[in-house]
Nucleic acid binder design. Structure first.
Lengths: 343, 343
DNA sequence: AAGTACTTTCAAAGCGCTTTGAATGACGTT
DNA sequence: AACGTCATTCAAAGCGCTTTGAAAGTACTT
């Protein structure tokens, strides 16, 4: 059933039927009802490709996933984020499209997405420290919003981010207050912008309290369980091991816990652990009492907010860019305690 | 730059340019070269919506995510699966589209996808025991393949699955061989087809060895960390607690481990644990020595194979359905040991 | 009665591509 | 010289929708 057939059944022109269905005012109320009833009855819905071609809008949002960022697509945090965005798309009649492109081809991918008119806008994820995607997209004129920030970008752009610097500063201060001075940071990969900011917050707190940072306690790794475990194992073997560890994600924190327990230490007593908690749905930080003391901020919520921002941007491309900075909550669980007093 | 402009620049008709670019034989070799060079130079690539409208193919594969299956999209296993599929789509020039639909609306979603011509085919994920999606899609005539099987479906259809029954049977036998008889099963939700099969394998092994299954040791829950923890806690408090636990995923196994350690027991000595391992990229089962003894089968690989199967189906809709059954490997790690002898 | 304004409907053009069916010209055959 | 073949190119139709500009009909003024 297409528009032509439907209009023939109704004895109306395609114009009128189309307008009736799309809520244009210049259609007689009675006619509109007839049309709507017939559309329902014959199970008609417009062919999206044709609509899209005619209007120039695809009603689709793109997510370009670089295959290089090995596991980004696969990244469990990414999953929750996308689910949040997908909620909004669903509500507003948009679809979501993934392009899995090989390393370094993002630029071409964006250009094609724009040229081919596949999508109306894109969400940029996982910005690096100097991420040229932002300037490229600005030049390209394809509406976009960024999850996170990229320090080096020229132009102003829309973003949603967590205050990573402040939340890691607070977490560090919390540990310092508990008497810890050997505080380790198991960060994400430090070419990522968010990781830089977290590290900055961590260093800021140490410096303000006159604790000089120890490079041996600052690790940067992919946020997997295995790396969290590996780095922790390694640091616990140092002559002067850390008494507290700051982890970048629940996943790596799980590895941290495994390592601590493996060497016979007790978490929260011998070694304190704070993690960042993205509130992943299948990896809740405990039910009532949090397992880990954590800086908490819902990545699912970030997905929602960002999607809404993008849709606004698509509707009003000339509006000034919007920004939203979430403050992470510091929730205290059972993984932290006073620094063990020397022996 | 569109086809019309490009053809004007070249002084050729749109027909010829289109054919040159699409590799039709009736174009002079020299002409083709000129066209290709010009296309490159002017950065031309065809508008996908127009192509799509003209050919009737969208070059897009759909994944319908029911919002009811609370966390399916978010599900970390889903992520790896989709990444595998996305690889194949990328290689073959297909895009991937997600529709996030509210509960029970899958049917309408499929119908619309078909009617609107948004996608050329869909992948069905997480089949339930009697999943009517399969019969609906068959009726609809929209090409599809299934990740897993749905016992109740009428028609024959294409699927890829792990031999869940056999792998859980083997895992159970392995534990029985170690002397365990109080073996618990922390299954996934049992309206899922795969969970039924796993349970069947588990029961089969017990029965063959004359061990009568204890309902108190058979749990069925969402495969999250928290549930794994919760069910384990609960079972360890029984008068006659299990000495071995079979978990449905790495995520729940992590919860199982937390619960075991919390009550001061040691995994692999006091309580043995076997988990199913989907080889999630960010949650590897250890580096050299597996953390958990596990039944292992790559869900990423399943995604690849299934995507290839679907593309074949789209190209040859009348070919008979294909099936592929992976056997899971049983890898022995440090989480299993002989049953503790009396006290 | 004629003119104006408004409401409602329509025919046709256009979105950018593919594909059908025809045309053109070069070449070899008879 | 006339004909059939073949290689190459093209004009135009069509995919299914939206939207422009015009037309028809109705009601209201003067």
């Amino acid at each position: 059933m297409n528009l032509k057939e439907l209009s023939e059944i109704l004895g109306l022109s395609q114009t009128t039927v189309s307008r009736a269905l799309n809520g244009y005012p210049e259609v007689n109320a009675e006619t509109r009802q007839r049309v709507e009833a017939a559309a329902r009855q014959h199970n008609y819905s417009p062919n999206r490709r044709a609509t899209s071609l005619a209007t120039g809008r695809s009603m689709t949002i793109g997510h370009v996933i670089p295959a290089s960022t090995q596991h980004e697509m696969v990244n469990p945090i990414f999953g929750d984020f996308v689910a949040g965005a997908a909620d909004v798309y669903g509500e507003r009649g948009y679809d979501m499209l993934f392009s899995h492109v090989t390393d370094g081809d993002e630029r071409r991918a964006y250009t094609e997405l724009k040229r081919k008119g596949t999508v109306d806008g894109v969400i940029v994820q996982g910005p690096k420290v100097n991420d040229n995607r932002i300037d490229e997209l600005t030049k390209l004129g394809l509406p976009f919003v960024v999850h996170g920030r990229a320090s080096g970008a020229q132009a102003d752009y829309s973003w949603v981010d967590v205050n990573n610097r402040r939340s890691f500063k607070r977490a560090t201060e919390f540990l310092l207050d508990l008497g810890h001075t050997r505080i380790a940071l198991i960060n994400g990969l430090e070419d990522m912008d968010f990781a830089q900011r977290r590290r900055a917050g961590y260093l800021e707190a140490l410096e303000e309290r006159g604790v000089s940072p120890d490079p041996a306690l600052m690790r940067s790794a992919e946020m997997t369980e295995v790396y969290g475990h590996h780095e922790t194992r390694d640091m616990l073997q140092l002559d002067d091991p850390p008494t507290a560890i700051l982890a970048a994600s629940m996943i790596s924190a799980i590895g941290v816990r495994r390592a601590i327990e493996e060497v016979g230490l007790t978490i929260g007593r011998d070694v304190s652990v704070i993690t960042h908690d993205d509130e992943l749905s299948y990896l809740r930080n405990g039910q009532d009492v949090p397992i880990f003391t954590a800086t908490r901020s819902s990545v699912h919520q970030a997905g929602r907010v960002l999607a809404e921002m993008l849709l606004r941007r698509i509707e009003e491309p000339d509006a000034p860019p919007e920004h939203q900075l979430f403050e992470a909550e510091l929730v205290v669980g059972r993984s932290t305690g006073p620094a063990p007093t020397g022996d």
